Simulated assay, not measured.
Amino acid sequence: MQIVAYLRVSTARQGASGLGLEAQRAAVQGFAAAGGHTIVAELVEVESGSKADRPQLAAALAMCRLHRATLVIAKLDRLARNVAFIANLMDGGVEFVACDMPHANRLTLHLLAAIAEHEREMISQRTKAALAAAKARGVKLGNPMGAGHLKAGAKYAASLSVARRADKVRSNDLAVAGIIAELSAAEHSNDVAIARGLNERGVPSPRGMVWSRGQVARTITRLASYAEPCTVR
């Protein structure tokens, strides 16, 4: 079968360093190799598992519908630690597989999601309790220097943020490059026609909304500037 790989880390630092991503990528690639499956796209998200707003996940689901592919993740908690989110996804018409439990049925996935959600809540409660206990002992929380200690790393953090946004834009562009190329090859093709074609196929725009002529034009311009071939693998 054809599969779309979805990788997620919780922090920008993990995303920039590759920490956690390589292990997830290896798990998905191992699953694909063992089953003779083809990876048609890979999308990476840097976001907390408690948040439901996932532009890269939305793009991954759109790719699954387009290619009639299966969404594959390394571990269930990489998808979400939220029971309602998992339930809605399971009812969304896209099949998905967790490499750590590839033969799990719908009931098992609900139970695992419930456990992951409970674990997230317990971590939050333990953190709050530890901070409250420290404060009761007279420990001064926070950095005594205030924001002063951030100055040295502010410039680096800003550049890291810019790089992260650029990587996210590039990932979005490459995910739709093949579809745009196909629509561009059609007779009488223009930016309006390409936008209409993307919307008809259910491919979300970079912001998770419908495509406009301007968004198509900007995406094509960026694709032309990338050094590597702009095709969805």
Rank of each mutant, 00 (worst) to 15 (best):
Q56A: 13
A163E: 13
N190K: 09
A158W: 13
H118T: 09
L109I: 15
R78A: 01
C64W: 00
L112M: 11
G49F: 09
K155A: 10
A166I: 04
Q56K: 09
L109G: 00
E121M: 07
H149I: 06
D77V: 07
A58P: 02
G178A: 12
K151V: 15
I115G: 01
L109V: 11
R68K: 14
V97R: 01
S124G: 11
M122W: 04
S171K: 02
G49R: 10
G178N: 12
K151L: 15
E117W: 00
A62K: 03
A114T: 06
A69T: 06
I73W: 00
A69Q: 05
A136Q: 14
A84P: 01
L174R: 02
R165A: 05
D167R: 14
Y156H: 13
A177V: 08
T127F: 10
M145E: 14
A177S: 13
T127R: 10
R81D: 05
A134R: 15
I123N: 12
L76Q: 11
R126E: 11
I73N: 00
R65N: 06
I73D: 00
V169Y: 02
K128Y: 02
G148H: 10
S184F: 06
G178P: 07
I123F: 13
L57W: 02
T70F: 03
L183P: 05
T127P: 05
S184H: 11
L150Q: 11
S189R: 09
G92D: 15
D100P: 03
Q125G: 08
L109C: 03
I115L: 09
R65F: 04
L57A: 02
K151F: 14
A69W: 05
R54N: 03
V72H: 01
Q56M: 15
G178C: 12
L66Y: 12
G146H: 08
I194M: 13
V176S: 07
A104N: 00
G92N: 14
R106I: 11
A133V: 02
K51T: 12
K135C: 07
R81H: 10
S50Q: 12
L111D: 04
A134T: 07
A87Q: 15
E117A: 03
A60M: 07
N88V: 08
A60K: 04
A181I: 08
T70A: 05
V162G: 04
L174V: 05
R106N: 09
L109W: 01
R164E: 03
C99A: 13
N190E: 05
E117V: 01
V97P: 00
H188D: 14
A60I: 10
L71W: 00
T108R: 13
A60E: 03
N190S: 10
R68A: 14
L89M: 13
A59Q: 13
I115C: 01
R65Q: 04
A62T: 06
G92H: 11
Q56W: 02
L150C: 02
R137Q: 12
A134L: 13
A59E: 06
A152C: 08
V162C: 05
A132W: 07
A132H: 08
